[in-house]
Amino acid sequence: MKLTYAAFILLGLLWGSNFIYMKWAAELITPAQITLLRVFFGFLPLAFVAWRKGVIERRQLRHIWHFLVMAALATALYYFAIAKGTALIPSGVAGVLGGSIALFTTLASLLFLRSEKLNGLMAIGVLFGFVGIVLIARPWQGADRAIDMAGVSWMLAATAILGFSYVYVRRFLSPHNLPPLALATWQTGLALLLLLLVTDRSGMGRIIEDWHAAAGVAIGLGVFGTGIAFLIYYFLLRELGAVAASGATYITPVVALLIGRAVGEPLGILEVGAVVLILGSIAMLQIGRLRSSRAPERHP
């Protein structure tokens, strides 16, 4: 059990530190190039473990079109939108906005999955989440706002993409009971091929001019923040279940904000308030979904 809790904390730290690595790399290369390097170095450990465990099978090719959709949306486009948003706003703020994934997953589930039902606690959680986002975006500041709205929009687009991809997986892939590691490997490998086809790689070598940025994007963001994080998440899924494993998202915004503060980014009452609201939103949505799923058992 101690190993499980250590893995839980480590996953939150890995996810939370991704934003500063993207921020460093954005000073030298484009968001598309950051995405390409992240997926490449993240794919390596996934492919190795998938090969060792023998989870990739030829018969899985029948689902190739669904894998391609997930590769394009939930990997290539999702990671690009995060890199683009993080390049435009402080890394800590990006981490807080990235923590709103549960909010958009819930909205997408309510819209497209008949099994998902909204209850009062979930409604309050959605409201809290959006209030937290507004506190971060500060639309009342107008043209003089400290936070770039384009960056906020890219981050929200990323979380929305991932939220809707969850619905896609539930509808088209979950019924086939594919091993999660196999799905992640197919998804990441195909995303790598797509990114190699569409990414302008000119000037990408500039990343080696700064060893902090190079190590951050290759080892921190790619190997650990993507590949190893996937593997830890699947370990937690097996040991704790989906709801408990996703609780690592509580740690992510806090870690990102503290790292941002450590490197000199401002940390004010609005940022702290936004974190509290978004974390409260995640908790209410998770508890609300558990209550909703148990409702038929109480009322047969």
Rank of each mutant, 00 (worst) to 15 (best):
residue 37 L to A: 04
residue 50 A to S: 09
residue 62 R to D: 12
residue 8 F to P: 05
residue 26 A to M: 04
residue 30 T to R: 07
residue 79 Y to C: 13
residue 87 A to M: 01
residue 51 W to T: 11
residue 90 P to A: 05
residue 71 A to Q: 03
residue 41 F to P: 03
residue 97 L to P: 00
residue 97 L to T: 01
residue 36 L to A: 11
residue 3 L to I: 12
residue 13 L to S: 08
residue 9 I to Q: 10
residue 5 Y to I: 13
residue 71 A to H: 03
residue 6 A to Y: 10
residue 13 L to Q: 08
residue 46 L to E: 07
residue 74 A to N: 14
residue 36 L to K: 09
residue 57 E to Q: 12
residue 69 V to F: 12
residue 32 A to S: 12
residue 27 E to R: 15
residue 43 F to K: 05
residue 85 G to Y: 00
residue 73 L to R: 06
residue 23 K to Q: 15
residue 16 G to H: 01
residue 41 F to Q: 07
residue 11 L to N: 05
residue 87 A to Q: 02
residue 11 L to H: 06
residue 33 Q to K: 04
residue 38 R to I: 06
residue 57 E to F: 10
residue 13 L to K: 09
residue 14 L to D: 02
residue 11 L to T: 08
residue 42 G to V: 06
residue 97 L to K: 00
residue 43 F to A: 12
residue 34 I to D: 02
residue 14 L to N: 02
residue 91 S to F: 06
residue 58 R to H: 13
residue 82 I to P: 02
residue 68 L to K: 03
residue 95 G to N: 00
residue 55 V to C: 14
residue 47 A to D: 09
residue 89 I to R: 00
residue 23 K to I: 12
residue 22 M to N: 09
residue 87 A to H: 00
residue 4 T to V: 15
residue 49 V to W: 11
residue 77 L to H: 02
residue 78 Y to R: 07
residue 39 V to E: 03
residue 46 L to V: 07
residue 7 A to L: 09
residue 62 R to G: 09
residue 90 P to E: 04
residue 86 T to F: 00
residue 73 L to H: 06
residue 76 A to H: 05
residue 82 I to V: 15
residue 24 W to G: 08
residue 74 A to I: 10
residue 57 E to G: 10
residue 46 L to Q: 08
residue 79 Y to V: 12
residue 38 R to H: 08
residue 4 T to Y: 11
residue 22 M to F: 13
residue 94 A to I: 02
residue 28 L to H: 06
residue 44 L to M: 14
residue 74 A to E: 10
residue 30 T to S: 14
residue 41 F to H: 08
residue 73 L to D: 06
residue 93 V to Q: 07
residue 73 L to F: 13
residue 34 I to Y: 03
residue 36 L to N: 05
residue 59 R to Y: 14
residue 58 R to L: 14
residue 12 G to M: 04
residue 81 A to Y: 03
residue 30 T to M: 07
residue 37 L to P: 01
residue 95 G to S: 03
residue 35 T to P: 01
residue 69 V to H: 06
residue 63 H to C: 10
residue 91 S to W: 06
residue 23 K to W: 13
residue 90 P to K: 02
residue 43 F to M: 12
residue 42 G to I: 05
residue 17 S to P: 03
residue 5 Y to M: 14
residue 6 A to L: 15
residue 51 W to V: 13
residue 79 Y to G: 10
residue 75 T to M: 14
residue 86 T to N: 04
residue 72 A to R: 00
residue 41 F to A: 08
residue 86 T to W: 01
